[in-house]
C-alpha cells in the first residue's frame, strides 16, 4: 500500500518535471521563432525598399546629373545589403550605410526644385517615407522579440535549455548608427 503511494507520488513529480521541461522547451522555441518571424518581416520591408531604390534613382537621374557618385554609392550599398545574411551585424551595418546615403539623396533633392515638384518623385518620396516607417516598425518588433528570447534563455532555468534555441549569438539588436546619434548642424541644410 505504502509502496504504491510512493510510486504514485514519484510518478506525479516526474510528470510535473517533464511537463515543466516541455513547457520551457516550447517557450524557448516559440521565442526563437518569434525572432525569426520578426527578422523575416524586416526583410519583407527591406525588399520593398530595394525595389523602390531603382525607381527613385531613375527619376532622380533625369534631374541630378552631377550626383553620379552618390547614385553609384547607393547602387553598390544596395547590392551589399541584399547579399548580407539576414539578422547579422553585417546586414545591419550595410543597411545603416544605405540608409544614410538615401537620406543624403533626399536632402539633395531639396536643391532641385523641378525634381522636388515632379509628380512621380513626390509619389516615390511618399512611398519611400511609408516604407521607412514600416522598416522602423519591423525593427521595433524584432528588438521586442529578441528581448523576449534573451529573457527566456538567459534567466534560470531557461538558460539550461538555451541550446534548444540553437545558435542565437548571431542575433543582435538593431541599433541606430553613430552618425544618426550625432547632433545635427542645421546650417548644413539651410545654405
Amino acid at each position: 500500500m505504502e509502496n504504491s503511494l510512493y510510486l504514485i507520488v514519484s510518478s506525479v513529480i516526474v510528470l510535473v518535471i517533464l511537463f515543466s521541461i516541455y513547457g520551457l522547451y516550447v517557450k524557448v522555441i516559440k521565442s526563437k521563432n518569434s525572432v525569426l518571424e520578426a527578422l523575416s518581416s524586416i526583410d519583407v520591408q527591406l525588399r520593398k525598399r530595394y525595389d523602390l531604390i531603382p525607381n527613385i534613382l531613375t527619376i532622380a537621374q533625369k534631374f541630378m546629373e552631377h550626383e553620379t557618385e552618390l547614385f553609384n554609392q547607393i547602387t553598390e550599398l544596395r547590392t551589399k545589403a541584399i547579399n548580407a545574411q539576414s539578422g547579422t551585424k553585417a546586414k545591419f551595418e550595410a543597411e545603416a550605410k544605405l540608409d544614410a546615403q538615401l537620406r543624403a539623396l533626399m536632402v539633395n533633392v531639396e536643391n532641385y526644385p523641378t525634381l522636388k515638384s515632379d509628380a512621380t518623385m513626390v509619389q516615390a518620396m511618399a512611398t519611400y517615407n511609408e516604407v521607412e516607417e514600416h522598416i522602423s516598425a519591423a525593427r521595433r518588433f524584432y528588438n521586442s522579440a529578441l528581448t523576449q528570447l534573451k529573457n527566456v534563455i538567459e534567466i534560470f532555468p531557461g538558460n539550461l535549455f538555451a541550446s534548444f534555441a540553437g545558435q542565437t549569438s548571431s542575433f543582435s539588436y538593431f541599433e541606430t548608427e553613430e552618425a544618426a546619434k550625432a547632433p545635427i548642424n542645421a546650417a548644413n541644410y539651410l545654405k
Binding site: 520578426a38 518581416s41 520591408q45 516607417e133 514600416h134 522602423s136 516598425a137 519591423a138 518588433f141
Partner: peptide
C-alpha cells in the same frame, strides 16, 4: 499584424 501595429503606434 505586429509590424502594422508598431507602424501605427509609434
Amino acid at each position: 499584424d505586429q509590424v502594422e501595429a508598431r507602424y501605427l503606434i509609434t
